[in-house]
């Protein structure tokens, strides 16, 4: 079980980093590397998408290797994160649409919010059962 867990965690780390790297390449490549060449941009976006799918598969594999308590902790955290992401995301979008905030609502802010919320909730739920 431990060896399998290490392998799954290692795979997830690799696919996450490669997804982040390909995302950076697809974001900055058109401007700084290949001068807005549409074929290269399409290729970079496609490669990033495929890496994202592989990251999700690696995450699912790790999740399925969790034991019952870990699964409960992560499911509770995911449920709360999903709910908060929908509510906070729509409120954030509404603030932008109604011009109550002076800047544009960026999706990256929501992604950071989701990541941090999930991290905090997993930590809190893990402590609850310790």
């Amino acid at each position: 079980m431990k060896a399998e867990r290490k392998k799954n965690l290692y795979n997830l780390a690799i696919w996450t980093w490669s997804w982040v790297a390909t995302l950076a390449l697809a974001s900055f490549g058109p401007k700084y590397i290949w001068d807005d060449h549409s074929v290269l941009t399409t290729l970079a976006v496609s490669v990033n998408f495929v890496h994202g799918i592989l990251m999700i598969i690696a995450n699912r594999r790790m999740f399925n290797n969790f034991d019952e308590l870990e699964r409960k902790i992560h499911l509770e955290s995911l449920a709360l994160t999903l709910g908060l992401a929908v509510v906070v995301g729509l409120t954030y979008s509404l603030l932008d649409a109604t011009n109550l905030i002076a800047y544009n609502a960026e999706i990256s802010n929501l992604v950071i919010f989701i990541g941090l919320t999930y991290l905090v909730l997993v930590t809190v739920n893990t402590k609850r059962y310790a």
Binding site: E68, L69, T126, Y129, A130
Partner: peptide, 22 residues
């Protein structure tokens, strides 16, 4: 935990009656 096939945290949570096993 190794014999049963769960994590040490799970055994600890069951012993402390914070978690009911499957």
């Amino acid at each position: 935990a190794d014999i049963i096939g769960v994590s040490r945290q799970t055994i600890n949570a069951i012993e402390k009656e914070k978690f009911d096993p499957s």
